[in-house]
Amino acid sequence: MFENLVVAAKPDIAMARLPSGMALLNMEKGKYYSLNKVGAAIWERLQTSPASMETLSAHVAARFQVSEQACRADMIAFLDMLRDADLLDVSPAARAE
């Protein structure tokens, strides 16, 4: 899952920083979500430009001193959750990066 794909933050998602991480609001659906600090770091990265799962894993590995390998399974689960919540745009890797 998410191999050869790039993901991006959907445009109509509002964000607010919290001491514990971040809150997101899907404005179209009127639904709120909360992210912990790792989730917040991923979202911040996604807001700058679309990224592949590998790019995101490397980003988290560098920031939180874990191996990229250890990140991967959690990253897939996290991106899956974001996609289910309709917070992500997913497109084929060839189009970006």
Binding site: D12, A14, A16, R17, L18, A23, L25, M27, G30
Partner: peptide, 22 residues
Amino acid sequence: GSQFFNNARAADHMRQCAALLA
């Protein structure tokens, strides 16, 4: 409810609450 919370107002309102919590 939804009469107030259109897109921009809902986002501002969430940011205000988060700012207070900070």
